[in-house]
Amino acid sequence: MQIMLFSILFVSITITVYLTMNLLYFKYHKAFLIPILTTTVGIILILVLFNIPYETYMLGGMWVDLLLGPAIVSLAIPLYKQRELIKQNMFPILGGVLTGVLVGMISGVLFAKLMGFSKEIIFSLLPKSITTPIAIQIASALGGVTSLTIAFVMIAGFTGIILGPTFLKWFRIDTAIGRGIGLGAAAHALGTSKAIELGEQEASYSSVAMTLSAIIGSIVGPVMAWFFY
């Protein structure tokens, strides 16, 4: 009974905070007000303030989490509707995503190595541009700490959605394909949620990039690890 009450309470809190933050974002439209960031900070503050452990929050959180699977499957719809466009651009997509995966892994590993971080941390960092469920698998196969990997994946995602659009403008990435591939390859599903805001073409390129980098990443990841150690 208590568990059920907690579940309902935390689901309601999550949805209420999210919808409020969504309104705020659409009213002021500032990059740092992006709902996923403000909602995360808001809920962490509530949990810390009332001394609620994450595990208790997840009694409700798991129900929200349950929708992530069908939502990822839903990305097949914009992909299907834009299939002609994707077929025509298969070569640019593959080229962009493959280099993206390589650059993401090599640069992260190199920087962390230069700063003298342990092998365990470096392997947890390696798959940070890949969507969470696959990043976890890559990291654990290498001997990284999966919980740390989740944190890195989230930092990469937030960087992509908060600073990404400004950054893309800076470097004159003004085509749907450039923006979609950049967001999907660097910031996985979070980047794709931003790409949906930009347009249906961006959304489908981004989901292709996310899916492809997951597939490529799970093959390239172990090779990278072997190469560096």
Partner: peptide, 11 residues
């Protein structure tokens, strides 16, 4: 879509 990531990001 962003809503379903919240439980993971709060983690």
């Amino acid at each position: 879509l962003p809503l379903y990531f919240i439980p993971a990001t709060v983690g």
